[in-house]
Design a binder for these strands. Sequence first.
DNA 1: CCCACAAATGTATGCGCTTACAATTGCTGG
DNA 2: CCAGCAATTGTAAGCGCATACATTTGTGGG
Lengths: 368, 368
Amino acid sequence: MSKKATVYDVAERAGVSIATVSRVLRLPDAVRPATRERVFDAVSELGYVPSGSARGLAERRTGVLGLYFPGFDASEDAPVLDVLAQEQGEAPPFTVEHASAHADAPHPTMLFLDEVLRGAELEAWKRGFVLMIGVGRDDPTRETVRDIAGRVDGLMVLAQSVPDDVLARLAQRIPVVVLSGPARGDSYDHVTVSNAEAMTELTRLALAQADPGRIAFLGGPEDSPDGAQRWDGFATAIAQVGLAIDDVIVLRGDFTRASGHTAAEQLIARGAPSVLIAANDQMALGAIDAFRSAGIRVPDDVRVTGFDGIEAAALSRPALTTVRQPMIDLGRAAVQLLARRLEQPDAEPMTVRLPLQILVRESSQRPA
Amino acid sequence: MSKKATVYDVAERAGVSIATVSRVLRLPDAVRPATRERVFDAVSELGYVPSGSARGLAERRTGVLGLYFPGFDASEDAPVLDVLAQEQGEAPPFTVEHASAHADAPHPTMLFLDEVLRGAELEAWKRGFVLMIGVGRDDPTRETVRDIAGRVDGLMVLAQSVPDDVLARLAQRIPVVVLSGPARGDSYDHVTVSNAEAMTELTRLALAQADPGRIAFLGGPEDSPDGAQRWDGFATAIAQVGLAIDDVIVLRGDFTRASGHTAAEQLIARGAPSVLIAANDQMALGAIDAFRSAGIRVPDDVRVTGFDGIEAAALSRPALTTVRQPMIDLGRAAVQLLARRLEQPDAEPMTVRLPLQILVRESSQRPA
DNA sequence: CCCACAAATGTATGCGCTTACAATTGCTGG
DNA sequence: CCAGCAATTGTAAGCGCATACATTTGTGGG
């Protein structure tokens, strides 16, 4: 790490001016092959790597796109890790754990975000951008996102991860794309999915496979926009098949497996339904566990559906009917919208709606 | 997006010099409360967000750390997606798929990287850094990683994702930390795990639960460093219990579920073993499938172990005994090493070895 | 062999910010 | 009420690069 080389160093070594060095790197064809070679040689001899900051400043664009997530990792309760402190002590190379239960799976929202991230990275790479990521934490002034905003050409934020006023201010400086939130009357570009429509269809499919009987809906927390949309979609389906919403048993969970289990127990106490539509996979799986414990068979006695398409839904027995989010495409679409706006800053705000994938599996099907 | 505001704009509006504006933002206590307020007002009125490039240039540090991954997404065969083209056409809000089989799970290496990324992000955030990510693709000149190197204060690379010569050159400019590769005689800081030691212990545990009989090892591809280490660990255990390595049946797969299935069929044809140690979870799960098809019970007839700790290993029946990588901690440790080196550029190169977690589950245990 | 013109290269400026140093202001005690 | 000093604020010089514009070099035709 000998003093970082700069254009000046390279220019001197190659016996040219800094302008020529810059040209060799940006527009190689604009410089004679002979000098070009000299410059390339100097570059590798010095291990020169251009400064992104200087370049960004001069070009007035950074070539970086930002992606900002809401955080679910509760940073405070992350266990302490200090590898430097261990330097001396010989830590054991492994620990042994007799784990009969299943491992603590990662938070599903995390998995969701991981894939969005991959999609965004892929698309950004294709267009010559690099990605910068940030996670929203209990950060009163939202410093991080502002920090990021200052370093990128465009910003993608997951709905609800940034307060409206902060976002509005950032949008004054760079284009902003909002991912997967409810379409509101703002002037940002949006990427969303048709939660309600897919839930309507899913519900219809499940009802078509069920014997007449009681219908139960297991919703999410009050304040979840996704939960609300899914409820709306469900309600639409109920209306479409000519039922009254009052005929439906509605329970509420918090999207966790445990809450699904509890809700199902309540249901069982009141007599098992013929169909259970859950607002996410976790709760559906918890409910299936509870049914099994009570000797109620899925799908034979109760048809069950989830929502999200997490891996456990595919691996569980019975395999869970669910709806998968086009996570990769959400990320890709966001980058595409951003790229579009960087080219046409004054284009009309646009909302892209990506299709969901309804996966019909065993849990919602009438047994053969 | 009215012309981005700069320090000059803020200074003029607040009636102060740009130096004062800068101070208000960096060292608020160094300026009188009255003027500080005036500046803050101007800042919010103008929606001012400082330019990361300019700041990075002036400070000679960017506050960004880079994370560079090998890519497994085969960018070429990513399906085309062009949301802008769809603008007019009304795409259906969902599709329905009757999926009896299990979904195509994400590449496990991806999941691994996702968690490393989260760990790195968490630790970076704690230290006031932002994270920039890049994925290594079929990019002849490794432009992307160089690009990133020019924008960050330090770089973390996954082993084998960057050619040695390129890495050496980047290390001339900024500190580099190598993740999870075999410790070689280079001068970078490293974060690794004790693959071999954990495999030795895992093997011993499995053998202790097995009846005397034939022992089989299902290895990975020839060129996999991880695979090699795991084999070494296995061989050590065999020697420790006084067996000859020639007594072991050795098969080789390519880390896929299918190859595990095939290998197990070959084993079965030659008479099922009493223990099967696989070099990763996928192959172990494939083998279990094959055993089941052949009417061979796990763990009753054959004890099986995997390696990696993927989610499917926990969800499968029988639950698979395996070894879990401390993925989050790998990311966190890498950032810690980077932070250390930024503070002490001349410290000795350091290798941190993180403990693995052996998860003893049903698949390797003697039935009660 | 010279001139007109194109290709190649050099010069100089500015991108927006931090910060050493200089200038000013506000307070203190005498 | 003023010297003397500390607290504030202003001035100006880069940070490393891209690029408009000026200059030099090279090319071809006459």
